[in-house]
Amino acid sequence: MKSSYSIITESPAETKDFGRELAELIEIPTLVLLKGELGTGKTLIIKAAVSALGYQGDVTSPTFNLVQEYQAEVEIIHMDLYRLNSSDELLDIGFEDYLNRNAVIFIEWPELALPLIPADFIFINLEKISAEQRKITVRGEGEQSRLLIERLNKAC
């Protein structure tokens, strides 16, 4: 059993397709961490996934307000931790309470959250290969990520 899944997308449109596929293959609740430099497509993937989960409104990175909630058939929580400096600040925004919600949670810039999360998450790493191309790698911990990686590998 492979413990990761990788794909190279050739364009933003293909990166979006990945987001849509992700939304179809995850179970609820789930925690999805997205790591990658600026402009690698974190928000693009989340946008596509959120839309595939049934939310029709606007989705932007909550860089300044840290957390956005979208109400589709499922509850969706979108965090961007770029602006925070320490894990303690996360506790101050009630981070652990968010984790306990029965929701799909997406976290951009998740490094500070790593010491606070349980052994059950999906970790997506994005690397820029060229202007258009991205390498997307999916890893993670726990049953949820194992299932997702299995499904992604099968889907190819």
Binding site: L114, P115, I117, E141
Partner: peptide
């Protein structure tokens, strides 16, 4: 959170 669960930092 128990120590065993917080070593993601190195891995991820």
């Amino acid at each position: 959170i128990p120590q065993a669960e917080i070593n993601w930092q190195q891995k991820y």
